[in-house]
Design a protein around this nucleic acid. Structure first.
Lengths: 258, 258
DNA sequence: GCATGTGAAAACGTTCACAGCC
DNA sequence: GGCTGTGAACGTTTTCACATGC
């Protein structure tokens, strides 16, 4: 036992840094894998490697949760799984609705990771009347008209938006009005929500664009070794572009650095 | 000059902070919308609102790119679109392969956001021979055997992994060996790659878990107002769980705080 | 001896507030 | 007068290094 009378410092439980929270699911996944292989204990070094972070960061992260390890030994895998699950709120299960059952919505409905750990797809909702009643991932799709009733009947507080961008804000407003307070948004739009509602967004094209940036940078570095002056020329081309008139059709100017 | 570290130390004045790079696609999207509505100029305040950030941050971000605004006026929309596109490397187009054409892979292939801005789906690849030849989003699926040839023929440097977790590392290794240097990973696994290869990951269940954490915290705050003692009881239940034997199937212990 | 847990230092990111320029 | 661009202040996150305790 962790020395019986450890009253939790109330200041700490609330103050887990956001960056730490974002990594807890990673640790949890690594720990679950170890648990399945019946590994009893793990060191910060090993676990960090499995989760793809460094061990100092992991230890610091865990220190916000409490002193759950044993010096000279490491962490008890089962115990940590439980503690992190509890901290993340996964010891209860969360009914979730997915709105927008296109390709992506169907993929999400079928995604095993949802059901496996604390989440239950309570309903699939789509605006297309053709879809209504059709089963996706074994769950019949319901029409948007039912949205408020579904949220209410199931006590749903987490909604997933997988609609086209144009519909997202409207769907979001309805979800929020119906009582949803956390939203995972896959539509490429900025959602506006009242205070107290959390939005996280997953944007496929943004991720690709970030990769493209780094990819270009790599290519640039290679070139740079050969011709260090190239960048200045590029900067001048840019300045020239600012001076020159822009393309008529709202497209990229014709001036493009080779 | 060999780059020893994972990320190059941003000593160079050229070094745009990672946090800024991650926001550029957001600005670009907002600007594109303005461009389509033929808005000629925009202030940092307006653009920031459209992108969902605050204006000081936006101005700071842009200051890393250069002085592209006009004091007292704002930013020229077309010009900024071009500058950000160029900075992100979107003035060239990037051939991309998607590996794993299940539900998610198909969703990605159909996702308009890819094609629209600098990315071109060069090939869809799946390990299932049944899939070979079938068109998804108008592109015939090719078998994994062809992977290396496809990468090589198309000069692909960006790969998207949408396979099951078990196959991801293997696919990743083959992509990297074939010359891919940027990977967008949708499989719930930590990928190990050599130096110089960038990996970004999109993890649906991690995002949900982060939402669950905040959701729980909200619920906890409400409860706390009524019964401040609840948390100590919870802490004891946790301690008891450490003592008690764990569930047989490597799952969360049966002891669950009500 | 060995690995955790944690203060203190360093790096990074955001916000402030105002000088500079249109 | 209005808005950008940016040093300086502030807050957060990461890293270091070692005291602490099994």
């Amino acid at each position: 036992m962790a020395t019986g009378r450890t009253h939790r410092p109330a200041t700490r439980s609330r103050g887990i840094p956001e960056a730490t929270v974002a990594r807890l699911p990673l640790y949890l996944r690594a720990l679950t894998a170890l648990s399945e292989r019946s590994v009893p204990t793990v060191s910060s070094e090993e676990l960090a490697a499995a989760a793809g972070v460094n061990s100092a960061k992991l230890r610091k992260d865990f220190s916000y949760l409490g002193s759950y390890g044993t010096r000279g030994v490491g962490y008890d895998v089962e115990y940590l799984v439980y503690q992190i699950s509890r901290e993340l709120g996964l010891t209860q299960d969360w009914p979730v609705v997915i709105v927008g059952i296109g390709n992506l919505g169907a993929a999400l409905a079928n995604y095993g990771g949802f059901a496996s750990r604390g989440f239950r797809v309570a309903a699939l909702i789509d605006a297309d009347p053709e879809m209504a009643g059709k089963p996706v991932a074994g769950i019949p799709v319901q029409h948007t008209d039912e949205l408020e009733k579904i949220i209410d009947d199931n006590g749903v507080s987490i909604g997933v938006i997988a609609t086209p961008a144009g519909a997202a804000q409207q769907v979001c407003d309805r979800l929020v009005a119906a009582g949803v307070t956390s939203i995972l948004n896959f539509a490429p739009t900025v959602l506006t929500v009242p205070d107290g509602v959390d939005v996280r967004k997953v944007d496929l094209s943004i991720e690709l664009q970030i990769l493209a940036f780094h990819e270009q940078r790599k290519a640039g570095e290679e070139a740079e070794a050969q011709a260090g002056a190239a960048m200045e020329a590029e900067a001048e081309a840019a300045a020239a572009a600012k001076e020159a008139g822009k393309g008529p059709d709202g497209d990229v100017p014709a001036v493009m650095p080779a």
